[in-house]
Design a protein around this nucleic acid. Structure first.
Lengths: 333, 333
DNA sequence: CCCTCGGATGTAAGCGTTTGCAAGGTCGGT
DNA sequence: ACCGACCTTGCAAACGCTTACATCCGAGGG
C-alpha cells in the first residue's frame, strides 16, 4: 500500500480511502491511485483490513449434515449471494456429538464472523446463549431460534396439508416415517411434522396408533427399514407420510422390492422426486438459502436491525405415489 | 491478551507462546497462564494472529457446482478433516462464466489462503498461472492440474470397464449421454469418459455413430432429454452409458415414461442408484475429499512438499438396469 | 570461583490496514 | 478583504497478535 501511495504521490490513507470507494476523494486523485494500484497489481490484504476495521466480512454457516441434499441447497443458495457481496462463508458441519461439543467448547466463531447462519438445528439454552455471546446477528433457516432472524416454511401447515391429502383420498390408517430424535442432535422440523401428523389425525377423529409411527435414522436405508417394518404389521397402513423425500425414497424402494402397494407422500420435493413419481410437499430450498443470506446482509449493514421472520410458501405436488384408498385395496386385496 | 498476561504475572509474549503450545515455557508458568486465560474466557483473535504470523490457516475450495451431489460429498469430506485440524474452509462456487471471470479477475484468494483445493475443474493456461501466482500449494480432486497434487480415479479405465460390461452382455449398439462441453466450463471428466467410450467401441471393432452420442446439460432433465432423443432414432441403441448417475436417472425416467427397454449404466454410485437399481461404476467420493484435505495438510506443513498423486480404485456395481442384449429384445420384439 | 551455555522470560518492532483528528485549500457570502 | 463551511488530504495511533533479539538465571566445566 505504501508503494501504491508513493507511486500515486499520495498518502496511504488516501489509497485506503480510494480503494474502499469512500466519498471524500477527488476524481483526479482517485484515477491516479487506481492506476497505480493496477500497475502494481496490488490488492489490499483482507486480513490486515479486518484487524484494523474490526469487521471480518465473514459469515459462519452452521449445518448438521453438510452432505445431505437439503443442506447442500441451502449452503449453495447462501454462498451465491454472500459471494456476490464479497463476504466469505465459513462452513461448520457439526452433525455428530463430538463435533458439536468441540464447536461449543471452543466456539471457534468468536472474533471471527460478522454474522451466523444456522440451518435447521435446535440448540439447548446454554448453546443458544453461547451463540448469542458472539455478539453478532443470527439468522436461522428452517426453524426458529429465539432472538434470531428466520427464514422458513410453516412446517405444521405443510405437513397438515399432506395428511389431509391422504385423508381426502379416503385413507384412514396412515403411517408416518420420521427420524430418530437423537437427544443430542434434535432436528426441529422432525418434531413439527410429527406433531402435525398426530394432531391432524386426531382432529379427523382417528385413533393414533403408536405402531404406525416409525423412528429411523435419516436417509434411504432408514426409509426402507421403516416401510418394511410397517408392512409386517398385522394391519399395515394404506398410506404413509414420510418426514422427508429421502425417507420416502427408501419407503418406495421397500414397496417395490416387496411388491406391496401403499400410498406414500414425502416432503421437500427433492430433485429426484419427479423421477420417482413421488407425491410430496414442495418447498424452495435453494431460495431459502438466498433469502437467509440477504437477511444476514441486512442485519450486518443496518445498524438497528431487528430479527425478521420470513415465511415461505409450500405446495402440494401431486404425483403417482398416492391414490384413493379403494383402488389398490380392491385390486390387490 | 494483555489482561491474561497481567493476571498470570507474565508478559504477553509468554502468553502467546503458552497458548500456541511452544516448547520454551516452564510447566509452572504454563499452568498459570492457562488458568488465567480460562478464567477470563480468553481466546486469541485469529485475525490478529494471522496478520502477525502471515499464515491464514485457511484453505480455499473451488468447485463449479456446489449444489450437486458429487461436489457436496467432496466438500463435506474435506471439511471434516480440515475442521479437525483447526483450518478454515473458504468455499468458492464458480459454476457460471460470470462468477468465474470475477474470480480470476480479482483473485480474491490472494493473501487469504494457505492452500487451494480445486474440484473437478479444468483451467485455461492463464487461469492456471493465476492460481499458481498465489504461491500456495494446490491439490486437485477428480483430475490433474499441472504442478498440483491430485486425488482421483482412473476415469478412462473406469469408463472402459463400464463399456466392456455392456459389450460383454452382447450389446453392439451402445449410446452415450454426456454433458455439453461448454467451452468456458469444460469439465475434464466428461472428456475422459467420452474418450473411453469411443476408444473402447473402436477397439471392439464397432463403428462409432455420432448420433448415438448425446450432449446435454447435466442433471435429470438432461438425461431424460437425451434418452428421449436416442429413442427416436431409426435404429436406437440397446444400451446406454451415462457420464454420471444423475444423467442415468434421467434416462431411466424417460424409459419408464415411454415404456421402452434399454440397458443403462451410470457412473458414481450415487446414493440413490441402489434404489433405482442402476448398474454403475462406484467411486468413493466423500473419501476423496478426505484424502485431498489430508494431502493439503501435508503440503502446508512439510516445507519441501512435492505434488503427490493418489489414484483411487473404482468398482463396477452390477444391478438390474443392464441385461444381455437378447433377453428384452426378444421379449419386446 | 569464574566462565560458558542453554533454557525461561521480557522487550519491542513489526504485520498492513483503518480512521479520528488536524491541516490546508477552495469558495461563497458579507 | 475576511470569515466560516466544506472538501481533500496527511499524520499517526490503533488493531491484537508474533517473533527476533536481548536479558536473566542457574547449572556445569575447568
Amino acid at each position: 500500500m505504501e508503494d501504491v501511495a508513493r507511486l500515486a504521490g499520495v498518502s496511504s490513507a488516501t489509497v485506503s480511502r480510494t480503494l474502499r470507494g469512500l466519498p471524500n476523494v477527488s476524481d483526479e486523485t482517485r484515477d491516479r491511485v487506481l492506476q497505480a494500484a493496477a500497475s502494481l497489481s496490488y490488492v489490499v490484504s483482507p486480513i490486515a483490513s479486518r484487524l484494523a476495521s474490526g469487521r471480518t466480512h465473514t459469515v459462519g454457516v452452521i449445518v448438521p449434515y453438510a452432505a445431505r441434499w437439503f443442506f447442500g441447497q441451502i449452503v449453495a443458495g447462501a454462498e451465491s449471494v454472500l459471494r456476490e457481496h464479497g463476504l466469505d462463508l465459513l462452513l461448520y458441519n457439526i452433525g455428530d456429538v463430538a463435533a458439536r461439543q468441540r464447536f461449543f467448547g471452543q466456539l471457534p466463531l468468536r472474533r471471527r464472523v460478522d454474522a451466523v447462519l444456522v440451518v435447521a438445528m435446535q440448540f439447548t439454552d446454554p448453546e443458544t446463549a453461547d451463540l448469542r455471546s458472539l455478539g453478532v446477528p443470527i439468522v436461522a433457516v428452517g426453524h426458529d431460534v429465539p432472538g434470531a432472524g428466520c427464514v422458513r416454511i410453516d412446517d405444521v401447515a405443510a405437513a397438515t396439508s399432506a395428511i389431509q391429502h391422504l385423508l381426502g383420498l379416503g385413507h384412514r390408517r396412515i403411517g408416518m416415517i420420521s427420524t430418530y430424535a437423537d437427544q443430542a442432535m434434535f432436528l426441529p422440523v422432525a418434531h413439527e411434522r410429527r406433531r402435525a401428523y398426530l394432531d391432524t389425525l386426531t382432529a379427523a377423529g382417528l385413533p393414533v396408533c403408536d405402531e404406525l409411527v416409525m423412528s429411523v435414522p435419516h436417509g434411504l436405508d432408514g426409509g426402507e427399514q421403516a416401510m418394511r417394518r410397517l408392512l409386517t404389521l398385522p394391519d399395515p397402513p394404506t398410506a404413509v407420510f414420510a418426514e422427508s423425500d429421502e425417507l420416502a425414497f427408501g419407503a418406495l424402494s421397500a414397496l417395490r422390492r416387496t411388491g406391496r402397494h401403499v400410498s406414500v407422500i414425502g416432503f421437500d420435493d427433492h430433485e429426484l422426486s419427479a423421477l420417482l413419481d413421488l407425491t410430496t410437499v414442495r418447498q424452495r430450498v435453494f431460495e431459502q438459502g438466498v433469502l437467509a443470506a440477504g437477511m444476514l446482509r441486512r442485519a450486518m449493514t443496518v445498524s438497528d436491525w431487528t430479527p425478521e421472520e420470513l415465511l415461505m410458501p409450500t405446495t402440494l405436488v401431486l404425483r403417482a405415489s398416492t391414490w384413493p384408498v379403494a383402488v389398490r385395496t380392491a385390486s390387490t386385496g
